[in-house]
Structures are given as structure tokens and as C-alpha cells.
Simulated scan of single mutants.
Amino acid sequence: MLAQLTILATDLDDIKIDFDSGSLTFLKVVIALILFGVALDTKLEDFAAAIRRPVPIAIGVVAQFVLLPALTFLLTILLDVRGSVALGMILVACCPPGNVSNILTHRSGGDVALSVSMTAVSNVLSIFLLPINLAFWGGLSPAGDDLLQSVDMSIWETFGEIALVIGLPFVAGIGISRIWPRVGARAHKIVGPVSFILLAAIIVLGFVGNFDIFQDYITIVLLAVFLQNALALALGYAIARATRLPVRQQKAMTFEVGVRNTGLGLLLVFTYFDGLGGMALVAAWWGLYDIITGLVVAEVWRRRTPVAPEAAVTV
């Protein structure tokens, strides 16, 4: 059995997940909708609030863009995963959070205002930091470096793609929220849930359309995703505890670090890596798994800790 898994793992670097150009365009639209939904719930005052509370924001930025990719890199070496799986794990670690982190923070009774501010700041920073982080940590990976070198992906091209998918929807959403706040508030209630339903549908249809591949190879990424997801959630909680943040901010930090926008990761996999097997499997499974684990953690946390009245706000 172990020998069979080793052979499968070796072949995984050569597997390509089928995803046509029409589906890729639809995925871009869905990711743009997700970021548009985040922006509709973001106000310019959130950035001002972030400036007034620089310590937790700075802690979150360091945890997301320095510690998580670094620890993920070490995890890929410890697990001795194949190159495509290693790159997939590193890519997920480099992705920003989405507004699922805001929803989970709200459900757990955490500091929603901090969560929204951190999500806004993280998504803006990811436009610049995601391609740099991916190139840096992917280049250091003994397993993933050769695959990364074989891909025609420049930092500037990736920066342009991310700026298009994140930057434009973000600016549009903030603008609408600023000029027409009632329209923005109503649209947010629709755009957010619809975009995530569409993303889940894309992932599920991808599983169905490539069922034979997923059936043969999904077991290879199960442990990797399980450990990385646990690591991300634990990192957010641990760094919040270590820096003595209040309980409600600990909850926000846990989900901001532990929840990743893997839809953006999938977009990059199919845009630059031609649906590379291990990367696509890791990002797709992460997209479903972290929502499940996040909901479980949020519900347990809500039951075990009191919810402050100001935490009960609509996200």
C-alpha cells in the first residue's frame, strides 16, 4: 500500500486537472465577487481604525505574511510531500483571508470590527506580498523549486493578475459603500453568500468532473491539509495569546490567520500552473475543509465563552 502511494505521489506532479477557459473566466468573476463582497463591508473608516489600533493589525500581518508561510514551508519539508503538493500548501499560506473569517469571528463572539479591518488590510497587502512570498518560499522548497522554475510566471505578471482580481473589485466595493451606503449594505447581504455558494459549486463540480483523479490522489493531500489547517488556526490563537490580546481579539486573530481565500489560490493554479495536480487538490480541498473546521471552532468557542453585546452585529 505504501509503495502504491509513493508511486501515486510521484505521478501527482505530472497530473493536470481539467479546467477549460470558460470555467477559468467564471472562476475569475466569482473571486472578484468575493472580494467585491468584502469591500462592500469595508469602509474607509476601517483603515483609519486599523491605524488607531496598529498593534493587533501588525501582529496579524506578521502572522499571515511571515510566520504562516515560513511554518508551512517547514511543514512541507517535515512531511516530505511531492513538489506540487508543497507548492499548493505554500500558495494557500500566501493567500489572504476572505469574509468567511468575518462571519466566523461573528459566530464565535469575537471582535468583528478588528476582523473586518484585518481582512481589508490583508487583502490590500496581498496584492504585493502574495507573488513575492510564493516566489520566495516556493524557490526555497527542495521539492517545489524545479516545478516553480518550469513555470513561466513572473512576479509582475502575478501582481497584475491579483491587482485585477482583488484591486478593482475592492475599489469598486468601497466606492459603492461610501457613495451609496444603503445600496452597499443591501448588496453585501446578497453578494457575499452568493459568491461563496458559487465558489463551492465550482469546487464540487471540479471534483465531479475529475472524479477519477480525485479518487486516486485525494488521500495524498488529506494529511497535509489537515495539519496545515490546524497549524494556521493554532498560529493565530497562539500569537494572540502570546501578545496578550483580549479574548474577543484572540478569536478574530485565530480566524484571520486560520482561514484562507483558496479560491484565489485556485485561480492562480489554473492561470499559471496549468491545473498542476497537487496544487489544485490542496487548494480545492482547503476551500471546503477550512469552512467546516472554522464553523466547528466558532461554535465551540461561542458556547464556552460569553458573547459581549457589541459582538452581536450583522456581518
Rank of each mutant, 00 (worst) to 15 (best):
L2K: 10
L2Y: 12
A3T: 13
A3C: 09
L5W: 14
T6P: 00
A9S: 12
T10D: 10
D11K: 15
I15F: 10
K16W: 11
I17M: 15
S21F: 02
G22K: 09
S23Y: 13
L24S: 07
T25P: 01
L27G: 05
V29F: 10
L33M: 15
G37R: 07
V38R: 00
T42V: 10
T42S: 14
L44T: 04
F47T: 14
R52V: 06
P54T: 02
A58T: 09
F65E: 06
L67T: 10
A70Y: 06
L71D: 04
L78N: 05
L79T: 08
L79Y: 01
D80I: 03
D80Y: 09
S84W: 03
A86V: 08
V92H: 01
G98P: 03
V100R: 09
N102I: 12
S108D: 10
G110S: 08
V112N: 04
L114C: 02
S117R: 14
N123F: 00
F128L: 09
L129Y: 15
P131H: 05
N133Y: 04
L134G: 00
A135S: 08
F136E: 07
G138Q: 05
G138A: 05
G139Q: 05
L140M: 11
S141I: 03
D145P: 01
V151R: 14
D152L: 13
M153D: 13
S154R: 11
I155P: 12
W156H: 08
E161S: 11
V165L: 02
L168F: 07
L168Q: 09
P169V: 00
F170P: 09
V171F: 02
A172I: 12
G173A: 10
I174D: 04
S177D: 03
R178P: 01
W180L: 07
W180S: 07
A187V: 08
H188W: 14
I190H: 04
F196H: 07
I197D: 02
L198V: 04
L199H: 05
A200T: 11
A201H: 09
V208F: 03
G209I: 02
F211I: 08
D212E: 14
D212K: 01
I213L: 07
Q215N: 15
D216P: 00
Y217P: 06
T219K: 11
V225M: 04
L227C: 07
N229F: 13
N229I: 02
L233K: 06
L235K: 07
G236D: 01
Y237F: 12
Y237K: 14
I239L: 13
A240V: 02
A240R: 11
R244T: 05
L245M: 12
P246G: 10
P246E: 15
Q249F: 05
Q249S: 15
T254K: 00
E256M: 02
V259M: 12
G265A: 15
L266R: 02
L267T: 05
V269K: 08
T271G: 08
Y272R: 03
F273P: 11
G275F: 09
G275W: 10
L276F: 06
G277Y: 13
M279G: 11
M279W: 13
V282G: 03
D290Y: 04
G294Y: 08
G294L: 13
V296S: 06
V297K: 11
E299M: 03
V300T: 11
V300I: 15
R302H: 11
P306D: 00
V307I: 13
V307W: 01
V307H: 04
A312D: 14
A312H: 03
